[in-house]
Nucleic acid binder design. Structure first.
Ligand SMILES: [Mn+2]
Ligand SMILES: [Mn+2]
Ligand SMILES: [Zn+2]
Ligand SMILES: [Zn+2]
Lengths: 166, 166
DNA sequence: AAGCTAATTGCAATCGGATTGCAGCTACAT
DNA sequence: ATGTAGCTGCAATCCGATTGCAATTAGCTT
């Protein structure tokens, strides 16, 4: 890592060392603020701005990637050797990572067909996690909470042309 | 559409009619500002805020979805009967849509495994489009611009544990 | 058709995370 | 030890997203 920076004419500082540690050893998908909290617990003197700039640096060298999970805050993810996807709960914000070489391959093929040189993959399913659905039904909600079976967002057919007509 | 609003206690207005038209008849993935421009060309009196609120409404009733393609601006996409993915050029911002029932099925399976009730799918490949790569090579850049073949972001193995260690 | 009221709209103000300018501090090559 | 290109902390700024509010309007009621 130190060498990596060196070749770029960049310097290793105690702040960066701490922030790198925090980033690579904490749960993934942290916001700048969350990571800053973590960092502060290790070295109270490190500023938010420095965390922000270091995350930017991490992304620039290819070890990190910005992620937008839908709550309006940017999150930072570690880049893995092979792309991975996410299952995101829009209720509690929990995330689960998964790998799928089949999906990656299919996406690669699509990109190739179009002549797009892939740089980053975004593979996400956003929905309501099991835990949140169980809580909801516990509070007496009448909504269908079954996940098993064929229910999915894609099933309900939406007549867009009709809707656009008026 | 009018009926749809009615059942919700909502009103159809000339502004909404215009904005609906603009949204469903323009290219997909427009920003609020872009759509506002379009709307203004149809009715100069319609305010940005109204466009924003109407897009929000469209999303709430399930006909639209927010998208973050990486340039920091929210875009609005039409929801299709079956989920679709995107090929996004991070250089020129062009997008191409594609459908893949295989990918959708694989994602559905993953979600089911985890107990996540799918609500929205995000399937994107971000990279450099053919056109942009050709322009780059034309300006005498030495970078490898081949898209065909096995090149992909997933191939370069990144030793994260090592990086995190220091 | 006129009246009534909740919904909608335009505009200005505000919000809040992202980003930047800058003066003082520091890593590290020499 | 010295010099200089990089860093850092802090405050200021940016800017798209969101909201408060008074005037206006759609659609129901009489
Ligand atoms: Mn991840
Ligand atoms: Mn689309
Ligand atoms: Zn949840
Ligand atoms: Zn392009």
């Amino acid at each position: 890592m130190r060498n990596f920076l060196k070749t770029k004419g960049l310097k290793m500082t105690s702040q960066r060392e701490t922030i790198f540690r925090a980033f690579f050893e904490s749960e993934p998908h942290m916001t700048v603020e969350e990571l800053h909290e973590r960092v502060i617990s290790m070295d109270p003197a490190i500023a938010y701005t420095t965390v922000w700039r270091t995350l930017k640096l991490i992304c620039e060298v290819g070890l990190g990637e910005k992620k937008y999970f839908g709550d309006g805050v940017v999150r930072y993810d570690r880049v893995t050797a092979t792309p991975h996807g996410h299952l995101v709960c829009q209720k509690c914000g929990s995330t689960e990572e998964f790998f799928s070489s089949e999906i990656t391959r299919l996406l690669q093929d699509r990109a190739d067909e179009s002549g797009l040189l892939p740089e980053e993959y975004r593979i996400e399913v956003v929905g309501i996690c099991l835990k949140c659905r169980q809580q909801r039904e516990a509070s007496g909600d009448v909504t269908d909470t079954s996940a098993k079976g064929k229910s999915s967002a894609g099933d309900n057919v939406i007549d867009i042309s009709g809707a656009g007509g008026m």
